[in-house]
Amino acid sequence: MNRPDTDLATALAADTPIPRDADGPVFAEPWQAQAFALVVALQNKGVFTAEEWAQALGAEIAEAVAEGGCRDGSDYYERWCEALEHLLIEKGLASHDGVDALAASWARAAEATPHGKPIVLENDPERGR
């Protein structure tokens, strides 16, 4: 599905300060690297094309900028995750309800996990009910 702001969105994505150094992307947190790798793997498996990805990411960045979002790149990977979520929903591989339920499960798991321990879904007290 093409969005009317595809060209603008793609241009904004190209102009966004992606966190990087001379060797390529840099990640402030492990989840950022995992999200990056997930998109690369899905694209390599043919789940979506590079053009579809650029359009989805560009649209998310355009929306964030239109809403006064950060232009310094500090929220780049949040936009990355939003684009992935919306693209997977658009392709019928995920649902809004499913994504929301999983996010809630992770939040409960985080709350139930002792400080300093890894957060895993198994820590969600409502999991398996």
Rank of each mutant, 00 (worst) to 15 (best):
P19V: 02
P19H: 01
P19Q: 03
P19R: 01
R20N: 14
R20D: 13
R20G: 06
R20L: 12
R20H: 13
R20C: 13
D21L: 11
D21W: 08
D21G: 09
D21Y: 08
D21C: 10
A22Q: 15
A22K: 15
A22G: 14
D23R: 10
D23G: 10
D23S: 12
D23V: 04
D23N: 12
D23W: 09
G24P: 07
G24M: 09
G24R: 06
G24H: 10
G24T: 06
P25G: 08
P25A: 05
P25Q: 03
P25E: 07
P25D: 10
P25K: 07
V26M: 12
V26H: 07
V26D: 06
V26R: 07
F27R: 06
F27S: 05
F27I: 07
F27T: 03
F27W: 11
F27H: 08
A28D: 14
A28Y: 03
E29I: 07
E29S: 11
E29W: 15
P30T: 00
P30K: 02
P30D: 03
P30I: 00
P30G: 01
W31L: 00
W31P: 00
W31M: 00
W31I: 00
Q32C: 01
Q32D: 02
Q32P: 01
Q32G: 01
Q32M: 08
Q32F: 01
Q32T: 03
A33M: 09
A33E: 15
A33N: 09
A33G: 13
A33W: 02
A33I: 02
A33C: 08
Q34T: 04
Q34D: 05
Q34F: 04
Q34K: 04
A35Q: 10
A35K: 04
F36V: 05
F36Q: 06
F36W: 14
F36D: 11
F36R: 03
F36A: 07
A37E: 14
A37R: 08
A37M: 05
A37Y: 09
A37H: 10
A37S: 12
L38N: 10
L38W: 11
L38K: 11
L38D: 14
L38T: 14
L38F: 13
L38G: 11
L38H: 11
V39F: 02
V39E: 01
V40S: 11
V40A: 14
V40K: 14
V40F: 10
V40C: 11
V40H: 11
V40E: 15
A41I: 08
A41H: 12
A41S: 12
L42N: 11
L42C: 08
L42I: 07
L42D: 09
L42H: 13
L42T: 05
L42A: 04
L42G: 05
L42M: 13
L42E: 14
Q43S: 10
Q43C: 11
Q43N: 08
N44E: 15
K45I: 03
K45P: 00
K45W: 06
K45D: 10
K45T: 07
K45A: 13
K45R: 11
K45G: 05
G46N: 03
G46L: 00
G46A: 01
V47I: 06
V47C: 02
V47T: 06
V47Q: 03
V47E: 06
F48I: 04
F48L: 04
F48K: 03
F48P: 00
F48E: 02
F48M: 05
T49K: 08
T49M: 05
T49Y: 02
T49W: 08
